[in-house]
Amino acid sequence: MAVTVVSLSACENARTDTLIQSSQIQDDALPEPLIDIEGEAKEGEQIFDSRDAGHCVLCHQINGLDVEFQGDVGPELTGVGARLTPGQIRLRIVDYQRVQPGVTMPSYYRIHDLNQVGEEFEGQPVLTAEQIEHLVAFLSDQKG
């Protein structure tokens, strides 16, 4: 019945260095890829589904996906590629809070202005630039 009790070691880790610059954002989009790779939709699907990666299905649903139980906290993403540009999708994953303060969607490529981040996650984004490019490719492919 032992429980790991971790004492508080970092109560405020408000880093100000940002992974993307405001100048990269155009309206509600981040048009340029984060790194110079061709995102692969198949990889992206894996990241979308997997508990160890993005686990986007925790909150989002895409019709026809081979996943048991998809969440509905966030908007449904069936056909999202027909509604949003790759750049809009990218910013929504990277750091939507930049243009929509208070939005529930977590920022998956951000290390700045966070509070009480767990020691093992400090200074790291949730996903890598490469993973996000794969996700953008997968979601852009969802034409409905």
């Binding site: 906290v73 809070q97 529930t104 977590p106 920022s107 951000r110 966070l114 509070n115 009480q116 981040v117 767990g118 996650f121 790291q124 949730v126």
Partner: peptide, 17 residues
């Protein structure tokens, strides 16, 4: 207060969703 790498506050799940 939002917290953690996911930057979520209790109210975002338990009041709003």
């Amino acid at each position: 207060t939002p917290r953690g790498q996911f930057n979520l506050a209790c109210n975002q799940c338990h009041n709003e969703n």
